[in-house]
Structure formats: C-alpha cells, structure tokens
C-alpha cells in the first residue's frame, strides 16, 4: 500500500500458544460443564424411521414418536416449531448428522430422540449433503436454559462424527447405539 513508510515495525514475537480469557461471558456458568448426550437417550428413543420419507416427513415421524414416548402431549406445536427452524437454515451438518430442534415454552427438561437413516437421505436445501443420523430434541425456552441448549447443539455435533455415525449404522440396535455413544463420550 501507499503509506508503508508510516507502518509501525512489529518485531516478530514467539507464537502465542493460547489466548487468555479476560472477561467471562455473561450468563456463563462459573465452571464449564460438559453436557452428556447418552443419558438423554433410552433404548426406545433410538429408532430407524421408515425408508423413503422426505426430510420434513422424517422429522414429523420423529416428533410424533418423541412426543408419545416422552409424554410431551400434542406433537403439532412441536412439529411446527421444528419445521419453522429448519426453514430458516438447515441443521444438517457435513458429518451426515441433522439436528432438528426447537425451544419450547413450558417444557421442563430436554427431550431427545435419535433416528438412524442407514440408506442416507439428501438434504433438500443442501443436496450435496446426505443425512445419515437425525438427533431431534426439544429444550426449555427459558433464558437460563439457553446456554445448556447451545452446549447440547455443540455436544451433539461434536459427538456424531462420521466414524460414530458409521458405527451405529453398522449396528443400529438401540442398546449397541447407546453403548457406542456412551463409550465415545467416556473417551473409549
């Protein structure tokens, strides 16, 4: 550029290994806790949905299943909220995991279900991505629960890497899936 003469000479410094945090984020817990995914799932909440469903239909199937098994009541408002979120930006990741979700008023705690799609399902918004596992969940729509909600999103996408998805597709039996998830979370 033109005014190079005026540039302050910056002496090379050794690389900084990690930046030190200066201000803790507002609303952050005092100590960072990791949210475990395994305990959120029971064997009846690990399912293989019928093949041939489009993404919205697949989500609808999982919402109904979860509402029934977790006694959440009428699935219609849950489905509407999830689909509304999906219409904004798709939650499908390049690892093959889709994470449809919604924050619901009046919900006491997180409810989740895992759908396994062995044959894969193209995401309608991102056709180069294939959905092979769907982790659908609802979390309480409360300000104080938002951090937990985010940690769950991050935790799920961290956990379901291609290797784990491959493993649960190879052995989709609910008990095996839950074991694989817990093993992975335990660092085995």
């Amino acid at each position: 550029m033109t005014l190079g003469w005026f540039k302050k000479k910056v002496e090379p410094e050794p690389p900084v290994p990690r930046p030190a945090p200066s201000v803790p984020p507002v609303g952050a817990p005092a100590a960072r806790k990791s949210l475990s995914i395994g305990p959120l799932l029971r064997e009846d909440l690990v399912v293989i949905p019928p093949t041939g469903l489009a993404k919205d239909a697949l989500i609808g199937h999982l919402v109904k299943d979860l509402c029934a098994k977790a006694n959440l009541g009428d699935p219609a408002p849950f489905l509407a909220k999830v689909l509304e979120r999906e219409q904004g930006i798709s939650t499908t990741l390049d690892t093959g995991l889709a994470v449809p979700h919604a924050r619901m008023d009046g919900l006491a705690e997180i409810a989740a279900i895992l759908g396994i799609v062995p044959g894969g399902l193209p995401d309608p918004k991102q056709t180069d991505l294939s959905i092979r596992a769907v982790f659908l969940f609802f979390s309480p729509n409360r300000q104080e629960a938002f951090t937990q909600h985010l940690h769950l999103l991050r935790g799920v996408s961290t956990l379901f890497q291609p290797a784990l998805i491959e493993a649960i597709i190879r052995d989709p039996a609910p008990a095996s899936v839950i074991k694989a998830i817990r093993d992975k979370e335990a660092g085995a």
């Binding site: 803790p24 991050r154 890497q161």
Partner: peptide
C-alpha cells in the same frame, strides 16, 4: 432473516462438527 438465536445455534453446531475442544471459554 434468521434472527440472533439461529445465528448462534448455527455457529454452535458448526463449532462442534469441527471437533475442536477449546481449553478456554
């Protein structure tokens, strides 16, 4: 278009998918 909550959620999803575990908040 999508709102702040969705923006933060998308970053959280991508953060996790990248498999990175930072040692600082």
């Amino acid at each position: 278009r999508v709102g702040a909550v969705t923006q933060i959620e998308q970053v959280a999803l991508a953060w996790g998918a990248l498999g990175h575990k930072p040692d600082h908040p």
